[in-house]
Design a protein around this nucleic acid. Sequence first.
DNA 1: AAAGTCCTATGAAAATTCTCATCGTGGACG
DNA 2: CGTCCACGATGAGAATTTTCATAGGACTTT
Lengths: 230, 230
Amino acid sequence: MKILIVDDEVQLVKAVSAILKKNNYNTDCAYDGEDGLDKALSNIYDVIILDIMLPKRNGYEIIRELRDNRISTPVLMLSAKSQTYDKIYGLNLGADDYLAKPFESEELLARIKALLRRKNEFVGDTLSFGDLKLNRDNCSLLCNGQEIALGKKEFQIMEMLILNGGKALNKERLIEKIWGFDTDAEYNAIEVHVSFLRKKLNLLSSGVNIRSLRGIGYILEDGNAKGGKN
Amino acid sequence: MKILIVDDEVQLVKAVSAILKKNNYNTDCAYDGEDGLDKALSNIYDVIILDIMLPKRNGYEIIRELRDNRISTPVLMLSAKSQTYDKIYGLNLGADDYLAKPFESEELLARIKALLRRKNEFVGDTLSFGDLKLNRDNCSLLCNGQEIALGKKEFQIMEMLILNGGKALNKERLIEKIWGFDTDAEYNAIEVHVSFLRKKLNLLSSGVNIRSLRGIGYILEDGNAKGGKN
DNA sequence: AAAGTCCTATGAAAATTCTCATCGTGGACG
DNA sequence: CGTCCACGATGAGAATTTTCATAGGACTTT
């Protein structure tokens, strides 16, 4: 789960980034509108936190540009101004929520969760697939009344697999989103963590399994679902 | 040791970044001239790898701008063109070296080492302080004929301490350069790694020690040097 | 169909890093 | 000079991640 933070107040960006990381999100940062827009256009983020007042391009422009490019990443607008006018303007332009600075970390987290819930299948803090429930708060996996803790990497892989629903997930994308695009991690690292995950799925006697598609990647299957492909 | 890579060929940037990381450098990346310039102006890099042809601002402009701002980070210019004209033009503007694409990773590494050697006290692949020699190739520390392996974090901390020479190094800077500016690492992490380093310095019976300056940071001292402060 | 090659799986171990709890100490302040 | 407090040091342990070696399977080529 990757979040882009765009704001020119370096201290604020660092603080927000730290808070998000502590809550198991990955973050990228941008300090001006142009950089922010470039990054956002890569369309790898699940949420964008966007200041209104920015050097080079303001928040409104960025949203318009994104929507023009059919990128529908949810946007949480930030602003020092708490005027109603701004608020409505931002929402009309396609921001999905709004938060006035200064704010509490709890409120920020709550709103991000709300945005994720809207776009994905989050219920509460959990993401579900088949008989599995993935809990973001403690990075754990629930199944058949049992709970097992996941490592951060395991968690993130499972998260991406579930969010990908029926589609295959290739390793390059996994590496980019989880390890970061400029890592030197090898594919074997993914394979090892997938192996860990499978072991844990077994322990939980889950009906879900991770199928590998040779040369392509991984896909999540629900063994309990009826075979019909619909 | 942090290196900035500025090039619009994403694949190339990734490849270079991976090579450098494997060789114990940290990297940041930028894909256009403006972003590259912004990052370079932060003046936290030890080398900048810079393409000539770039969107928004070309390599020449970036070098000029950097030098105008009295930032003397060594620059390794890249270009698809291998014409002599470009070569000389780049060097005149303040590029410190030049490499034509495509290139071998060995050559890239060699040239980077050369640039570092020029600016710092590198001799071969080692950095020295007092009776210590720090070896980048295997992340190890040599002293009195003994050698001891360092963890990556330990290595980087020691490297920064040595490069800082007599000056104090504050923790915030260590965190920014080693963990990355958007980390959630706590100061205690540094303290723990410094503790590891001290233990290893002891094992080597080195005359060098890491002194802490309360509320400020760390500084390297050579216990064998005569007390004169010069 | 046999051989060869590439991709994937996985056990086992190692290495690294982080967390936590506790202890010590410098220095401010009364 | 004594007390208190924030900062730093460090041991111990845990957790996580990576590395390595090897084996199995799939796909291609001949």
